[in-house]
């Protein structure tokens, strides 16, 4: 039987959508494929209100304090942070590369913008990822329809604003279908 739908508690501030936080970490030396990707990704929790979000987030490690090859994923409840998910299969993502030291602040600004519905693109946002790597960190924002130029442009402009990025920051859009073809995520 399906589990009951999570709701905001009495007196709490509901979010437009419920969200789930996931964590993944690649074992050193292991080659990534879609099977072990799915095994490595762990659901941390799901929340329906601002208060529930902070109860999770305040106890989580900040992404900038993670080491190795790790990712936090924040996705709408019911959407798995994988290309294969029905909501993602025709989608794509904006990729922003960050120099070391910026990950925690950028991630917090990004997820607050998502939870607060600052992107104004209807149902198009699927989720966001912060990827901690050795040389640099990467944030990405996933949307449903890679071919929808008006939506992807609006997401890019909102990202620039909420991340407060330097004007020369390089942003790249990649359709998941293209990532599948060249077998790469970044």
């Amino acid at each position: 039987s399906p589990r009951p739908i999570l709701k905001a508690g009495p007196g709490e501030h509901p979010l437009q959508f419920n969200y789930s936080i996931w964590f993944s970490r690649r074992s050193p030396g292991k080659q990534q494929n879609s099977t072990n990707y799915e095994q490595n990704i762990k659901l941390v929790g799901t929340f329906a209100s601002v208060e529930q979000f902070w109860r999770f987030y305040s106890h989580m490690v900040r992404p900038g304090d993670l080491s190795g090859h790790s990712d936090f994923h924040l996705f709408k409840e019911g959407i798995k942070p994988m290309w294969e998910d029905e909501a993602n299969k025709d989608g794509g993502k904006w990729i922003v590369r960050l120099r070391k030291g910026l990950a925690s602040r950028c991630w917090e600004n990004l997820i607050l913008a998502m939870l607060g519905e600052q992107f104004m693109v209807g149902e198009e946002i699927c989720g966001a990822v912060i990827s901690i790597r050795f040389q640099e960190d990467i944030v990405s924002v996933w949307n449903k329809t890679a071919s929808d130029h008006a939506t992807t442009t609006r997401i890019r402009d909102t990202l620039r604003r909420v991340l407060n990025l330097p004007p020369n920051t390089i942003m790249e859009y990649k359709a998941h279908q293209d990532s599948l073809k060249d077998n790469s995520s970044f």
Binding site: H13, L15, S58, A113, L115, G116, E117
Partner: peptide, 21 residues
């Protein structure tokens, strides 16, 4: 329908609410 929109300042303020602990 109506969208539930929160700005960053409000969300940051909510961080300190007793319900968020």
């Amino acid at each position: 329908g109506t969208r539930i929109i929160y700005d960053r300042a409000f969300l940051m303020q909510m961080r300190n609410s007793p319900h968020a602990k």
